[in-house]
Each structure stands twice: as structure tokens, then as C-alpha cells.
Amino acid sequence: MNAADNDQKILIEIQNVHKTFGTNAVLNGFNLKLYENENLVIVGKSGSGKSVLLKCIIRLLTPDSGNVLVLGKNIPELKQNELDKIRTQVGFLFQGSALYDSMTVRENLEFPLRRHPEKLIGHDVDTLVKESLQSVGLEHTIDLLPEELSGGMKRRVALARTLILRPKIILYDEPTSGLDPITAKEIIQLILDIQKKYDTASLIITHDMDTARVISNRMIILIEGRDYATGTYEKLSKSEDPKIKAFFK
């Protein structure tokens, strides 16, 4: 960790988190800090518990032990209404987009907004929906159903739906998985643009090192349920540790 980190505000702090399913110990004392305006990438093998980790941050799963501090609040201890408040400030992009397939794109975007009118801040729903779609370049799909969209478009609409509540933090679960390299690049660019435009911090999970190289300010390598190594892409790519080297082949 470099000296500059100390002046920056910490948005998420995970301390010594453990999570076990039956006999399968997925997280084994994981630690992480996410700073303001930062792109932190977590890499790990398939099944290493990356999605589980993200889900612990917004309590889709509850860790067995350890602290998960988001915007200063300890997530496992929050009451439901306090949790809901935090959740509106943390965007989550699911691995499979998770668009509501019985609703049009417009209704998908309106859904979180209508249930959090405090987020309207003087704007009307329609303007915000259009603006959000515009920032992902998909205004023309507004009246389509998710089934009429391609995989890449779905990912963007999902991103627009996340953006509409103006989160301070966005959690991306494999934003480029299942996409062709060109579309993947577009999504990466979009993530970078959005970060600039809305000043968000991002926690990005991936197993694609190209994505990690382009997008990350810092990286954490997840091995055996721990934050095995932390550092910039350059630093980690020069490591002599065979376990780390395996990721950079």
C-alpha cells in the first residue's frame, strides 16, 4: 500500500471475512479496502468465491464471521431499512445481467426509481431513464423487452439500471464474461467513462487479465479464500511467486 492511500476515504472495508457452505470453506479470512474514485479488480479462478465475496458486501449472503463496512456501516448488523438505504448507494451488476424479463427496458430502469422517490432530486422519472440509457448509448431500446436484446446490450441496460440510483460504489461481477472481445472492450470503456462521469468507485471481479490490465488501479488476487496478493497490475505481473505468475500467462 502506498502512502497516498492513507489520505483517501475508505468506502468499503472488509476485515477477516469467513464464509463456509457445509464443509466447503469458500472465504477464509479475506481483507479488502476500496478507496474513493478507485477501480479495484479482484481476480481469482472460477469457483474461488468471487461472487460469494461480492454478495457478502450487500448481504445477499451473510458472512459467518468478520466485518463488512460499507460507507462506514457494518453490513451484517444493519436493520432492514438501514440496509436498504445503503443498498441504494451501492450498485450491483450481476454476472448474468439479471434484467427483469417481464418488463421493458424502460420499466426495468423505472423499477428502482419508483421505489426510491427520494432519488429523483427534482427530476422526473422519464428524464432520468432517458439520461441513464443515453450514458450507455442505448436510447433506442427503451421500449424493447430484454429477450430482444443481445448479450452485450443486456449488460449495458443492466448497467444503466444500476446507474439510475446514482450509486457511490458499483460492484461488477464479471462484466465482460460471455462477450466477444470487441464488445468486452466496449463495456470496459463504458465502465471507465461512467466512473469519470459519475465519480464512482468500482469493485470489479474478473478472471480476464486483459480487463484487469486496462481497468485496474489496484488488484487483489484471491487464492484459497484469502487476499493472497495486493498491488498494481505492473507490480503483480513481475512477481516471481508461481501462484501469482499462473494468472499472468
Binding site: R87, S102, H116
Partner: peptide, 20 residues
């Protein structure tokens, strides 16, 4: 079937994390 597929494709989780 409808709720089952919403569950499987994480749509129910997505609702939950949007604070609904």
C-alpha cells in the same frame, strides 16, 4: 416457473439489492 426462473437468473437478488 416464473418465480423459479427469476430466482435462477438472479432477478430476485437484483430486486433485493435495489432496495426493494
Amino acid at each position: 416457473a416464473e418465480l423459479g426462473s427469476m430466482k435462477v437468473t438472479e432477478q430476485i437478488d437484483a430486486m433485493e439489492v435495489s432496495g426493494t
